[in-house]
Write a protein that binds this DNA or RNA. Structure first.
Lengths: 201, 201, 201, 201
DNA sequence: GCGTAATCGAGACGGTACGTCCTGTCTTCTT
DNA sequence: AAGAAGACAGGACGTACCGTCTCGATTACGC
């Protein structure tokens, strides 16, 4: 979280403590699950005082959010563009297969589910999440689809946000609501069905 | 010895207390939101003892679930079939417009969001929900789509579950994650796009 | 403490828990001293929840007060009169020697010092203490001195409250402020000096 | 190597900061009472760093002690002798009336009560206090009483420390334990009773 | 129609965690 | 070096709920 109540002096922040807290949060979510995750537990595990957590984060959800961002930074990801080989279907397959993999990795999946739930309960956190993660990623998707549209691979009158929802939504839903196994084959079916439409022709 | 600790005598159950508890749960979710809903609060509001709640429901999520079912019964809904006029697109429009309306009604929407969150956190509740609500409803959808398929309005090789996801998923996602305004126009766009597919032709 | 904020149901009070808490308070004062005594510590030692303490007592000082009263009850004391043999000086000697003994018993002395300090800081507790302990005891003293006055052993115009202060005050001060050793000999000197006065004659 | 961690260079001490801290301590005791006095609060009020306080004083009681000494210095008191007109009773009356006045002045009384409490809890502070304030003052009292003894106004066999206690104790007790109104009349009664003794004659 | 057994309201209880306050130490930058 | 500022680990505060557990006081059956 960037915005704070009373703006502690960020320059003096102890970075190793920050890392210890974020790591502890990830570890604990993995170990005991989100429902039993507590600020007290994170502080104890990190060897930090509770006040140190409350100084920098407004809620345990915000800690988890930063922890996930840290995880991402570590992997050097945050690409500035989605792949664009000129073949939309192939590129979507690449991207969604990677997503399937992430969703199936408990190290990522557990804290992401936890964060998602927290976001459903905490509008402030939701706003932060939308701004810092969802919107940028959605913009990447939008750009890729616009490029496809210009290349004539996507119908000109398609609403790109609806297209994004048709392509990425089903995967997220299966994951979040445990509505079935997350397989690359499912991703393939979704892509094909969304591109071709349901209608008989 | 048939009687167990966990087998209270349903016949003796006080129905007016039951209703008071479910009503209190709905009222409180509306008033203070899900995050601040507590069993203690429900009991106090309902003029009931906490034990009475714990005797009949395993969690506050289960109370909320029953409360929503009660809400539904009152409206005499629970149709045994989705409308089937022979025109799939028209029927989908009818159904999804009704869904839009439900999602925009705070009396239904707030407790439904709360229940959804609880389901994400509580596998036992999730199983109950899947069995008692989600599966029956999904079966209705599946039947309507199968009928369309047989009538040649849907491609023969379409996976019906994926089709359901493409048609109903975007609405639920917008609602659950507050990702945009829930309008009948959005529903129309989704239906059209899903039926026709994204591909230029 | 008798007066409570929101009057919990005294009839349902768990007496063994009450005793456990009071005993724990006494033990902890003896072990770690008053400065490090905490409600949290008492609860932990007693195997009780903190709320149980806060339900029945407004402060740790009040717990300590009740603990001391319990200690007194156990010893079957709380005499309804001070000894009155007809010989004032002898009776005062008896009483003050007993007081010296109490002050020199760490089991009583430590919690009493702690309570006294707490009373200095907490007017509500002070009022309770005055009403339930100090005033009754002072009345006993007053009665004994009045009897002596009527027997012609005390000057008729002596203010009894001042007399009490001259006789009992020095002992309490030595004890509370650690101003010297608490001996029976000191008590004797005080009695003699107070009775005879300072003036040369 | 002479310099130690615990030996700050007194010569470099910022006197205006020292005064600001002592003044803040007095102000805060007056405003919020002793129980809510905190080092943090003093530092904030004084515009000083907490470390500056911890560098020069071992406890908040010590700060309060110095603050009171500062208050005394300002009034130019610290007499080297108690008044000795040859009339003991008159001189005692003069002195105790002045004491009554001090105890009734909240500017002095509040921090003195606070300091007294702190002394009861902190043996190190108690030792300091005894050495720097109590003993010198007691020596003044002892000298005045010895002079009276030599002048034949006090019985030759009277223990001077007990006499001091009989004369000054009752006033202090009334003040510290709020045991009644502090009036010059009370002081007069104490003096008279202590000098003449309780015994009928 | 009368015990008797379960439900019910009430709420005390042992706990866990909350978010806040303060302690005493430490670090950093300023004077 | 001392000082202002304030982050930090830690401990305790007093509160809110959890889920379990007694308590009488109503019920509503089954004999």
């Amino acid at each position: 979280m960037t915005s704070q109540r009373n703006a502690p002096n960020v320059a003096r922040r102890n970075q190793s403590t920050r890392r210890a807290i974020l790591t502890a949060a990830l570890d604990l979510v993995a170990e005991v699950g989100y429902a039993r995750l507590s600020v007290e537990g994170i502080a104890a595990r990190a060897g930090a005082g509770k006040q140190t957590i409350y100084r920098w984060w407004p809620s345990k959800g915000a800690v988890l959010f930063d922890a996930l961002l840290m995880l991402g930074e570590g992997q050097g990801d945050r690409p500035s563009e989605l792949p664009d080989t000129g073949n939309l279907e192939a590129d979507l397959t690449t991207v969604l297969h990677a997503t399937v993999e992430e969703f199936n990795d408990p190290r990522l999946s557990e804290p992401m589910r936890a964060l998602t739930v927290e976001i459903l309960l905490d509008p402030a956190l939701a706003a932060d999440y939308t701004e810092r993660l969802e919107n940028p990623i959605k913009e990447l998707k939008r750009r890729r689809l616009r490029s496809a549209q210009e290349a004539g691979q996507l119908a000109a009158d398609v609403d790109l946000d609806v297209a994004i929802e048709l392509l990425w939504g089903p995967l997220r839903n299966r994951w979040l609501h445990n509505e079935g196994p997350l397989t690359t084959q499912f991703a393939d079916t979704v892509i094909e069905t969304a591109l071709n439409g349901l209608r008989a022709r």
